[in-house]
Nucleic acid binder design. Structure first.
Length: 445
DNA sequence: AGCACA
């Protein structure tokens, strides 16, 4: 003969000055909530958008009796409590005060909670383009949107956005309007299990893709599949330590690491040959293969190391640096998708240093070229250093430097150790070939 | 429609 059953069967609840309201319409604003409750007393605190479907709320009266009056009134009223014609169910909360630890402006965090009002599930795409558009406005450097995204966000700059933000231009035409509410989440690190149409972790390119979730109609996991308010944990400021492995210093998504580097060469005033690249990149370890090619009118090269670690060190060390003084031949490095280059063992645009025969061939076949100082591959190309280039390094046209210059890397001797191949000094007498600035070794500046 | 950042 117990006097109280299990909680789910309680017909009476301990009165509380906090009331729990449910079955609210999705549009229900805090103001409407207050309108409903204020006949019974002043509302001192609220919490709206509660629950999986964001259609519950809490209100707090200063006095317990006011809450009792409201519950009692609607318990005996023939007219149910309504918001926008929808019946709202009211009961005592099982807590006695509303704890609002969100107070967005006061507790900035690195994760943003973004609530979108008035959109259907399918209206908002997780596509990069949406987030790019949206968050570039706020100096957010990395993007995504849907249920959970990691973002690089400068949250302080997002503060002005706590106001509702119209962003209908991001949405399909049939969507009349949509507002965003942005607040700080209490989360500090979102645990993204897989990449899908509704979750994305831009810092982890290796995260598995959920094949059933990446496409097709949205499966809303919270039952009501057309809850029309979606809340997203949208923005996560990822610290630099988080980013080291996955996101570059500019915040852009970093490609998966690879033992092969893709080098784009900017301002290629002088020819960048296989040998030049070999010299430069060998400072960080054995270079296995090199391939040079043209893409979109600029020169790119693939440089293969035996392992990712070496490639990574080279990439970090060389990124943004110039092979020659004066801003010439500036390197931009990224990881290639390749892991093993299929290149001709020896040509003017490629080299495979892993093939001993090819190395010997390379070495021997180079000798006559060196002797004649005529390298057909470079003859007459557009990279001849013009006379009188301002800032041209090392103008003295006399003689050839016999080896790599001292300045280009921290370990200039390391390149020669792995095969009998000796890289041809990449510098050539001024005006004779176009392989480099006159009498100048490639060195990184 | 059932208690608070899935």
């Amino acid at each position: 003969m117990s006097t109280s059953g299990p909680p789910q069967f309680r017909y009476t609840q301990t009165p509380s000055k906090v009331l729990h309201l449910r079955n609210l319409p999705w549009e229900c604003s805090e103001e409407e909530l207050v309108e409903l409750c204020k006949p019974f007393g002043k509302i001192v605190n609220t919490k709206i958008n509660v629950g999986a479907n964001r259609n519950q709320a809490f209100v707090e009266f200063p006095d317990l009796n006011q809450a009792i009056q409201m519950v009692s009134y609607y318990a005996s009223s023939s007219e149910p409590a309504q918001v926008r014609g929808k019946t709202v169910y009211i009961q005592y909360s099982n807590r006695h005060e509303i704890v609002n630890n969100k107070s967005p402006g006061d507790n900035p965090g690195n994760v943003l909670l973004v609530t979108m009002e008035g959109v259907e599930a399918g209206d908002v795409s997780i596509d990069v383009i949406h987030l790019k558009k949206l968050f570039c406005l706020f100096s957010v450097e990395e993007e995504q949107l849907r249920m959970y995204f990691r973002l690089l966000a400068l949250c302080t700059k997002l503060l002005p956005l706590k106001k509702q933000l119209a962003f209908r231009y991001l949405l399909p035409e049939h969507v009349g309007s949509c507002n965003l509410r942005i607040s700080y989440s209490a989360h500090t690190d979102l645990n993204i299990k897989f990449q899908s149409h509704r979750s994305r972790d831009y810092t982890n390119p290796y995260l598995p893709v959920n094949p059933t979730a990446i496409d097709g109609s949205l499966q809303v996991t919270h039952g009501n599949h057309f809850s029309r308010i979606y809340s997203f944990f949208l923005a996560q400021h990822v610290t630099s330590s988080h980013l080291q492995l996955a996101v570059g210093p500019d915040g852009r998504k970093k490609e998966p690491e690879s033992n092969v580097l893709l080098a784009s060469i900017e301002n290629m005033q002088y020819a960048v040959t296989v040998d030049v690249l070999h010299t430069v990149f060998s400072a960080f370890g054995n270079v296995q293969k090199i391939a040079i090619f043209e893409k979109n009118g600029s020169t790119q090269a693939l440089i293969q190391y035996p392992d990712i670690a070496t490639a990574s060190v080279a990439k970090e060390a060389l990124e943004g640096h110039c092979i020659y003084d004066g801003g010439y031949c500036k390197l931009h490095l990224s990881y290639s998708r390749h892991t093993d280059l299929n290149v001709k063992a020896y040509s003017d645009k490629s080299r495979d240093y892993t093939i001993p025969d090819a190395s010997l061939l390379a070495a021997s076949s180079q000798i006559p070229w060196q002797n004649h100082q005529a390298m057909p591959a470079y003859g007459g190309n557009a990279y001849n250093a013009p006379p009188g280039v301002p800032g041209m390094p090392h103008q003295a046209p006399t003689g050839q430097s016999p080896g790599p210059g001292p300045g280009y890397g921290s370990n200039p001797g390391s390149y020669g150790g792995h095969t009998s191949y000796q890289p041809q000094p990449p510098m050539h007498p001024y005006g004779n070939t176009a392989a480099g600035p006159p009498h100048s070794s490639p060195h990184i500046s």
